[in-house]
Design a protein around this nucleic acid. Structure first.
Ligand SMILES: [Mn+2]
Ligand SMILES: [Mn+2]
Ligand SMILES: [Mn+2]
Ligand SMILES: [Mn+2]
Lengths: 228, 228
DNA sequence: TTGATTTGTTAGTCATAACTAACTTTTTTA
DNA sequence: TAAAAAAGTTAGTTATGACTAACAAATCAA
């Protein structure tokens, strides 16, 4: 029987590395994730990552061969999913009950996700009546640790003439989220691709009667579902 | 002008030392607090405390002479009061909204009090409609940092025949709090001192028709206001 | 008032988690 | 396929915050 005591003994750092690795692996299930890629994602040196990975391997959360790619064990995945659940529930709480805007929630949730108490998070979930999505459109894993991913593609991957609906956004950058709101885009907005400029891949889009030109970098952070 | 940026840069440890020192000083305003007393309170070695006090003096949160007693600067006090405010607001939230019992809230609040966000705590305060007291009867400092103390005395300091009302309890021990509830005591209970046994200072009390004998140690952790 | 006890300080060690610099292995490309 | 580039590893350093052991100062008590 695996150890499921109320308080696991992971440090904030260990948790952050596991979550980051999970997200890199989940992002693109085909491509393998290496040490330096994880380092870059976490904005630490490759040496730091190498060190932490050693520790996580010793604790059986990560598996990898020397010079090989990184994988999470079932236990490692379970910890990561629990962190994502906590993160998204807190974001939802801040957004729905404490007047936080969607660009403000991520940084505080990044701290709150490390609070250790199963009761806290399950009661918070109940208090909010088991929300399905966080303020950025991402699905919240349930208490059983079921992690579903909505089939989503980036706005930048569409072609001229395509019509889609905004279903989620990357919540990492405050400036990006503010800009999304500023131009009038929101979750569920219906977007039409008018034109893709070959020169710099910038995209002319139409939504709610508005016409805007956005960069490829912007479109990479917008997740949509194709309609029609 | 003093530095009041949104995120102060104190570590969890620095915060805990400042809060502990404040509480020792507030507890008994006449008696001076020394290095080893603070160490014992925090359950760390005197050497650790000595080291941290050096750091807090360098940052101008603590003042003391070599081999002398410890004092907090105005800034040190302000940080401590903010922590107490956060701690008690979180306890109130857990108790009133998330079905935590009064013996469960303290440990989780001990973690939550270190989350850095002024907006978070002021919005939480507003969400709960500015509660005055935490689940253990302690007053919650307001956003201006005003720290009031209810005039309170321990149950153990009363004499035979005295009648009092339970206004607060020490929230440090889960077992103690459970026991308080178990015997049927709660905030506002009216208690009469029937007898104090000389031998071991145990106290026979009456409340709500119940008669119980409690130890001096128990009575030291119960705060009351004399009535009549 | 002087010796014992308490209180406070210093020095040195350990664990965690970051860093840089140097090195090795693997992969890519010419 | 051999040199170059990229990816990964190791060694050594730093900062924080614990610890113990040894020592010094202050206070208490006979
Ligand atoms: Mn987020
Ligand atoms: Mn985090
Ligand atoms: Mn408490
Ligand atoms: Mn604390």
């Amino acid at each position: 029987m695996t150890n499921k005591s109320n308080l696991n003994n992971l440090t904030k750092s260990e948790e952050d590395y596991l979550k980051a690795l999970f997200q890199l692996l989940a992002e693109d299930h085909t491509v393998k994730v290496g040490n330096n890629q994880l380092a870059e994602y976490l904005k630490v040196s490759p040496a730091s990552t190498n060190n932490m990975i050693k520790k996580l391997k010793a604790k059986h959360y990560v598996v990898s061969e020397k010079y090989g790619k990184l994988e999470l064990t079932a236990e490692g995945q379970s910890i990561a999913v629990r962190l994502i659940r906590k993160h998204r529930l807190w974001e939802t709480f801040l957004y729905n009950y404490l007047n936080f805007s969607w660009d403000e929630v991520h940084d505080v949730a990044e701290q709150l996700e490390h609070i250790k108490s199963y009761k806290l998070i399950d009661e918070l979930d109940r208090f909010m009546d088991f929300p399905e999505k966080d303020p950025h459109g991402e699905l919240i894993p349930n208490a059983k640790g079921e992690y579903k991913v909505i089939p989503k593609i980036t706005l930048s991957s569409l072609e001229e003439g395509d019509v889609c609906r905004l279903i989620a956004v990357n919540d990492g950058s405050v400036n990006f989220l503010r800009f999304v709101s500023e131009i009038g885009l929101a979750l569920s907005s219906k977007i039409k691709i008018l034109e893709i400029r070959e020169f710099d891949k910038s995209i002319r889009i139409q939504f709610d009667g508005t016409i805007e030109t956005v960069t490829k970098k912007f479109a990479d952070n917008v997740f949509v579902k194709k309609v029609i």
